[in-house]
């Protein structure tokens, strides 16, 4: 019966397309398994971790990113984004999104470290992608802070502002402040290009230079504000606004007090 059914339809033009697709899936699947099974396991650990990560993914992420992480009209594909992307996006609470909008806002993470690691392990098995940076890669202890400052001003300051305070982009999007970013998050952001941030690959911005940038951001985070009231370190425009409003109001109040007749 089945044989007869197949025989009757084997000249159907759809069969050729179906066979072609099947072949592509088999070859592609075999290739991707062969090419990244090893790094994924090496980087992220056991098969159970991957399976649990997949479970978490299907529950929490698949409604937007698709059952096979292929992407839908609500969210981009996660094939090839790597463990670093997952660690950054979920670890900083940007994903899952609270609501669709211009900006993925950082908030308290919905998953704990362990769960994030599992999801990262799962996504890393989909296709080769940037791994979560090692402790050695983000160790900025010996990095050149001054060089980091130069590199920051060339590559980062146009969006994140010279003092890392963040700034506006187009149509409601913005580059976030870096004041609470950890070295790992900074590294991951440069490597994966979250949201609209471009990617700064290890080839064009080598690990040493990334370390220098992290050291500079750390310096910005630690730097005290000797005079106080840094006003977001946004510079003369904000300082001028403060002067023309708060300080002028105080001066006018003083002038009024001088002018009022005593009782």
């Amino acid at each position: 019966m089945t044989v007869k059914f197949l025989a009757a339809r084997r000249r159907n033009p759809a069969v050729a397309i179906a066979l072609l697709l099947l072949a592509l899936v088999v070859v592609g699947g075999a290739y991707s398994l062969a090419s990244n099974a090893q790094p994924a396991v090496a980087a992220m650990g056991s098969q159970t971790q991957v399976e649990e990560g997949k479970k978490l993914y299907l529950e929490g992420c698949s409604s937007c990113h698709g059952l096979n992480a292929q992407g839908t009209k609500y969210g981009p594909t996660l094939i090839g984004v790597g463990a670093a992307s997952v660690h950054f996006q979920v670890g900083t609470g940007r994903m899952p999104l609270a609501a669709p909008g211009a900006q993925a806002v950082a908030k308290p993470p919905a998953y704990n470290e362990d769960e994030v690691a599992k999801m990262a392990a799962y996504v890393a098995t989909l296709a080769p992608g940037p791994a979560i940076p090692s402790a050695e890669q983000v160790d900025y202890a010996d990095a050149d802070v001054a060089k980091g400052g130069v590199l920051f001003r060339i590559n980062c300051a146009q969006c994140h502002q010279a003092a890392g305070q963040g700034g506006a982009l187009t149509q409601g999007k913005y580059a976030p402040s870096l004041m609470n970013a950890t070295p790992t998050e900074i590294y991951e952001a440069m490597l994966t290009g979250p949201q609209n941030m471009p990617v700064f690959s290890d080839e064009t911005l080598p690990v040493e230079e990334k370390k220098a940038i992290i050291a500079y951001v750390n310096e910005l985070q630690q730097a005290p504000s000797p005079g106080g009231l840094s006003l977001g370190r946004l510079g003369p425009v904000v300082e001028g606004l403060f002067l023309w409003t708060a300080v002028f109001a105080a001066l006018i109040a003083a002038a009024v007090w001088i002018g009022i007749k005593a009782r």
């Binding site: 590559n155 290009g193 471009p198 990617v199 700064f200 690959s201 080839e203 064009t204 911005l205």
Partner: peptide, 14 residues
């Protein structure tokens, strides 16, 4: 120098 494969899609280099 820069090789084309050094710049991923979405990449930016000054």
């Amino acid at each position: 120098g820069i090789r084309p494969e050094d710049i991923p899609v979405g990449g930016l280099v000054s």
